[in-house]
């Protein structure tokens, strides 16, 4: 039985395999509509989510399976003081696979020890969010048809953004990758990840504060939201939230085949005027999330068509 806690739990071959399955699902959706017949997925969301929860539910239903679960901790026995361990052990008696989001870091590791069925981490605090990274990888693959030799710009809140940490860990495994970290001083990419993931492998990177300066060399621009919930001081949030706003003007010097990605939801960091630019990949990215989750559910349940 497999669990998915972190994107690096998957080998590069397994990521290739998931992407190939997702591509086949996109091309032949009918072939997969009964793949998970009689299978039950439990979606345990201890904190709110729109995209991740709905895309998992849509993914399971498009595979012909069914879904149970809750969308906030208040409507589960957690509100009565039940431990996470007991909750997942109980749900593991009913469902074939569990998808969980939890505000505490490492919660899926606790769950995986007791559930008795595969666990997929759908986000644990500011820690990991591997299915978002799979979504990002599928989006990059569908546009670039390679993961090698790309220059990837990451912009905005690089300190607290779990999606950028996971994406860097995933992309750092491919050759010829270069990262450009675009962030204000207060939200810089964590030094320890640079040391452990990049310096040890000799991967090229640079840190800049100007989006305009970085733009011409990028193959991928990954925008992030400055997350209000990560700040203790609202004044700091207000000061930093609009540091980077992507507009059509700022896209001018970018490569014609660069793609703009964003894990969504966005607030102000991408002007709606950019939405119609062919380089805007963030809504297709959301759709890719459903397809790659279909591929992942099938892999974890060991079902084939």
């Amino acid at each position: 039985m497999r669990n998915l806690m972190n994107i690096t739990d998957l080998s590069l071959e397994e990521i290739d395999e998931l992407i190939a399955t997702a591509e086949d699902i996109i091309a032949n959706p009918k072939k997969y509509e009964n793949a998970c017949d009689h299978k039950l997925l439990a979606a345990l969301f201890f904190e709110p989510s729109t995209r991740t929860r709905l895309s998992f539910e849509a993914a399971m239903q498009r595979l012909g399976g069914r879904v149970i679960g809750f969308s906030e901790a208040g409507s589960s026995s957690t509100a009565k003081g039940e431990s996470l361990s007991d909750t997942v052990q109980t749900v593991g008696c009913y469902a074939d696979i569990i998808v969980m989001r939890h505000p505490k870091e490492g919660a899926p590791v606790v769950a995986a020890r007791r559930a008795g069925v595969p666990i997929i981490n759908a986000g644990d605090g500011a820690h990991n969010h591997p299915t978002q990274t799979l979504t990002d990888l599928l989006t990059i693959w569908r546009s670039k048809h390679t993961f090698e030799g790309l220059t990837i710009g990451l912009c905005g809140d690089l300190k607290f953004g779990r999606t950028v940490h996971s994406l860097v860990a995933a992309m750092a495994r491919y050759s010829g990758i270069k990262f450009v970290f675009i962030a204000p001083e207060e939200l810089k990419f964590p030094r320890y990840i640079i040391e452990e993931e990049l310096d040890t492998r000799g991967i090229e990177y640079k840190e800049v504060t100007s989006m305009e300066e970085a733009m011409p060399e990028l193959d991928v621009l990954y925008m992030t939201r400055v997350q209000k919930e990560r700040f203790f001081n609202e004044a700091d949030y207000i000061r930093l939230k609009d540091t980077y706003i992507l507009t059509p003007d700022k896209l001018e010097p970018a490569k014609k085949d660069m793609i703009v990605m964003h894990p969504l939801p966005r607030v102000n960091e991408i002007s709606v005027a950019v939405d119609d630019d062919p380089r805007a990949a963030y809504f297709p990215q959301a759709k890719n999330g459903m397809f790659i989750r279909m591929a992942l559910i099938m892999k974890m349940l060991e079902v084939t068509v």
Partner: peptide
């Protein structure tokens, strides 16, 4: 923010990273 801060029965465990 670690799950061990609230999950009282979780055993604290560390791995050698470097």
């Amino acid at each position: 923010r670690c799950i061990t801060s609230t999950e009282v029965n979780a055993v604290h465990e560390f791995r050698l990273a470097d």
